[in-house]
Structures are given as structure tokens and as C-alpha cells.
């Protein structure tokens, strides 16, 4: 089985990303990925897909859990000691900040000699400085915690904005299509005798070749099937794209493939992914421009 295409089809890669494989089989997949860039690409696409799926199911743990889990984790891995985390940097800072005083004390004591007054003064200064540092340290820690919280909030707002912007652009585009009767011609697609209830509309711009589809009602699909839109140009069928599940249920406009010229639009039921030629006896709606 030296054909990489066959290997991609074998389902091994899915097992790999889902972690179903034995270490030996994993090594085999990695070996294929190293030899064939196509296999590697496919693998990366699958991994990215799972990542999206995982991220889409993100669920913020209850706030109280944070403290419990973190302290339990720290109890097992030892106190936060890695220099990379801000919490861990703190003790170092405190030591270095109090260094001048530590150094000052022994120097001051022998110089004073006859009196311990200097030493006492230095100790008091040291003590005060330690207390001050401890205070500063705890404030600093609080500040850095709220900074992390704020950064998280900000990231969330940013991604919300992004999603909203995308939806806004889509909506604006749909509005533009609906508000330009000169540019977009409305083609009503009526149900064929077998599906008299079915009803949809195509908005077609001849000058820009754009096609939008708006479903009013379509019969539910059997498993493994998908609606496909066709443009008929001088009797010849041209694939105008597949309807997403959302469009088929009448959720909104969907932009279909660009069509240079057409006199008729029609929709058929095809196996998921579409067909090269329409299966005529499954024609659900049809309409002339």
C-alpha cells in the first residue's frame, strides 16, 4: 500500500488524531507523514478540525474550582518555582530589594563598635523594609492576577467582536442583495409535481454573475443526501453549489457559485458532496428567469 491517497482514505489518520492507535501504528503514521507532504497536510487539517471542535465546546469551569485545582496541582508538582511564571519571580524581587539593608547592617555594626544603637537602628530599618516589601509583594501579586483576568476578558471581547463583525458583514451583504432589485433579479423556484409544497427563490445578478439562494420551504432530506442547485444555460446543467443544512432549513441567504449565464435554475437531491450531473427524477423546485 504505497499509494498515499489510499493511505489517506484508509481511516488511519482519523484514528491517529483521535488517539486510537498503538505506539507502533502511530510511528507508522508519522513515517507516512514524513514521506508524503500530502499525508502530512491531511493530518494537519484533521488535527485543526478536532481543535476547532474542542474549542467550540469550551466550558468555563466554576470560578471556585480555580483555587482548588491550582492548589492541588501545586501540592503535587511542588510550589511555583519555575522562573517563567510571574508568581515565582516575586521572592527573588523581595530578596534583591532588601539587599541594601542586609548589606548595611553588618557594615554599620563594627563601625559603631562601642554602641549597639546603630545595630538596633539597622535592624529596625531592615524589619520595616521587610514588612514593606511583603506588603508590596502581595499587592503586586494581586495586581498581576487582575491583569491576567483583564487580559482574558479582553481576549474574549476581541473574539466576540470578530464574530459579530463577520455576521454584520454577511448581513450587510444580504441586505444589499435584497435592496438592489435592478441588479439582482428575483427568480421564483416552484415545487415540481412530486413536491408541490417546495418553494425557494434565487437572486441572480447577470452583470456580476452572483447567485444567492433563499429557501422558503423544502422537504426534509433522507440521510446522506444534500440539496444541490443547478443553473441551466441553453439546456445544459451547470453546478451552482451545495446547500448547507442551515440554508435548506430556510435560515438565511446563501451565496452560491458564480454563474455566467443561465435561463433556468433548478434544485435536485444528490448524495452528500454533490454530483457532476443532476439526478433529474429528484428535482424538487425549478424556475425560469
Amino acid at each position: 500500500m504505497e499509494d498515499y491517497q489510499e493511505y489517506i482514505e484508509s481511516g488511519r489518520l482519523e484514528q491517529y488524531v483521535l488517539g486510537e492507535l498503538s505506539p507502533a501504528a502511530q510511528a507508522e503514521v508519522e513515517d507516512w507523514a514524513a514521506r508524503f507532504p500530502q499525508v502530512r497536510e491531511e493530518l494537519e487539517a484533521l488535527e485543526a478540525g478536532l481543535g476547532v471542535y474542542a474549542e467550540a465546546h469550551a466550558l468555563a469551569p466554576p470560578p471556585a474550582m480555580r483555587e482548588r485545582v491550582l492548589s492541588a496541582v501545586f501540592a503535587q508538582i511542588g510550589p511555583p518555582a519555575a522562573p517563567a511564571t510571574p508568581v515565582a519571580e516575586a521572592p527573588t524581587m523581595r530578596v534583591s530589594a532588601s539587599n541594601p539593608h542586609v548589606a548595611a547592617a553588618p557594615v554599620a555594626a563594627p563601625a559603631a563598635g562601642r554602641s549597639s544603637g546603630w545595630a538596633i537602628a539597622a535592624s529596625v530599618a531592615l524589619l520595616l523594609s521587610l514588612v514593606g516589601n511583603a506588603l508590596l509583594y502581595s499587592r503586586w501579586q494581586q495586581a498581576s492576577e487582575s491583569l491576567v483576568a483583564l487580559e482574558n476578558d479582553q481576549a474574549r471581547v476581541a473574539s466576540t467582536t470578530q464574530v459579530l463583525n463577520r455576521e454584520l458583514t454577511d448581513t450587510r451583504q444580504q441586505l444589499h442583495v435584497l435592496r438592489s432589485p435592478d441588479e439582482y433579479k428575483l427568480v421564483a423556484l416552484a415545487g415540481t409535481p412530486t413536491h408541490p409544497q417546495a418553494h425557494a427563490r434565487v437572486l441572480y445578478s447577470k452583470s456580476e454573475h452572483r447567485v444567492y439562494l433563499d429557501v422558503q420551504q423544502l422537504p426534509p432530506l433522507p440521510a446522506g443526501k444534500q440539496y444541490q442547485l443547478w443553473a441551466l444555460d441553453k439546456g445544459k446543467p451547470i453546478d451552482a453549489g451545495m446547500l448547507t443544512a442551515a440554508t435548506a432549513s430556510g435560515d438565511g441567504l446563501q451565496q452560491m457559485k458564480d454563474i455566467a449565464s443561465a435561463q433556468t435554475f433548478a434544485m435536485t437531491i444528490e448524495p452528500t458532496g454533490g454530483s457532476v450531473n443532476p439526478t433529474l427524477n429528484t428535482m424538487t423546485v425549478v424556475g425560469n428567469i
Partner: peptide, 8 residues
């Protein structure tokens, strides 16, 4: 496979 590629 189709689902994962669509997600990607």
C-alpha cells in the same frame, strides 16, 4: 473525515 475537514 468529511466532518473534520469541514471544521478545519
Amino acid at each position: 473525515r468529511t466532518a473534520l475537514k469541514m471544521l478545519a
